[in-house]
Nucleic acid binder design. Structure first.
Length: 302
DNA sequence: TCCCAGGTCCTAC
DNA sequence: GTAGGACCTGGG
């Protein structure tokens, strides 16, 4: 099964290495072809094609549509850029990372991935998630090799502490099992959040239940909302975005952004709200281009 | 040995 | 409300 992506405007390197998804790997040094697991499919992606290798046990013609949805190919990048403000730094970022597309991932996988991201760097996050898939995922056998699916909520809800810790999740284990149990019990229905407004959905994600912690704060919630729950107006703020804001958008704020070492929930709300109103309904695209730009600038200036 | 990593929680003012 | 510290773990 194969999709023609030549007219769909995607740069695989920019799309898969920008930190929105963690299960993609380049096949060569140039990064012209990438392999990843989506649901029970293994995908091979270039600028021109998306090849779909299904699990042998599953034959389904809806797959094409689901893959189109995963890549959010219905979103026209040029139209997105037209709607964004034309400040110089953002324009440079958009030019430099041409073809970076926001994905529309599975909400459960996305939320768990960003719970794993807490206080970790990207290589570590990838390793943890790979460990979880190997330990708790199901086998996927395709013509291009054997892979593992992402763990189900049930598998993590029923997991033993020692098994989770063997995946190197560390203190995040309690977050993972907690959230998995809420999903299994039906207390939290992630797909339902798609139909709510950004504010409503975020309120549910960051809420606390019976005094116990979710592990989901502002940043993790915004990532799940942006990358998997169709809320393109979300604007996650992490340490890199804070650096970016200090360098290029500080003048917008009455509070002294440069003096902030970290973000209190209140300040997160102030900054996020202002930038969302500045960047508009596609704030998340701006965020992701700026994130990439800020990171690479930092690397080159070292 | 210390510091940092796509943060969040807990505790004390 | 908020500043300061702890937190699994691995790498520089």
């Amino acid at each position: 099964l194969e999709l023609d992506a030549s007219q769909l405007h995607i740069n695989p390197s920019h799309t898969f290495s920008c930190g929105q998804a963690f299960r993609w790997h380049p096949l060569d040094q140039k990064g012209s072809k990438w392999i990843g697991v989506v649901g029970r499919n293994v995908l091979a992606v270039t600028r021109d094609t998306v090849k779909i290798y299904s699990d042998n046990s599953e034959k389904n013609n809806d797959e094409k549509e689901r893959i189109m949805d995963y890549f959010a190919f219905d979103e026209d990048l040029h139209r997105v850029f037209q709607d964004l403000p034309k400040d110089p730094y953002l324009l440079t970022a958009i030019q430099e990372f041409e073809g970076l597309r926001l994905l529309s991932q599975d909400p459960w996988e996305c939320l768990v991935s960003f719970l794993c991201s807490i206080n970790k760097n990207i290589p570590s996050i990838q390793r943890i998630i790979e460990n979880l898939c190997n330990r708790f995922g199901e086998r996927i056998e395709t013509d291009v090799g054997k892979y593992r699916s992402f763990p189900s909520p049930q598998s993590l809800a029923n997991s033993k502490e020692s098994d989770l810790l063997s995946c190197k999740v560390g203190f995040r284990s309690k977050y993972l099992r907690f959230i998995a149990k809420k999903i299994v019990s039906g207390e939290l229905d992630l797909d339902k959040l798609k139909d709510l407004s950004y504010e409503q959905a975020k309120g549910i994600l960051v809420s606390k239940i019976s005094g116990k912690t979710f592990g989901v704060g502002n940043k993790v919630a915004d990532c799940a909302l942006l990358f998997s729950l169709k809320k393109r107006e979300a604007f996650p703020i992490d340490v890199w975005m804070l650096r970016c804001i200090r360098s290029h958008y500080a003048k917008r704020f009455e509070i002294n952004v440069s003096a902030l070492k970290s973000l209190s929930p209140k300040n997160y709300e102030i900054i996020s709200k202002d930038l969302r109103s500045y960047f508009g309904k596609h704030s998340g695209y701006a965020q992701q281009y700026l994130y990439m730009k800020t990171r690479t600038d930092a690397i080159y200036s070292r």
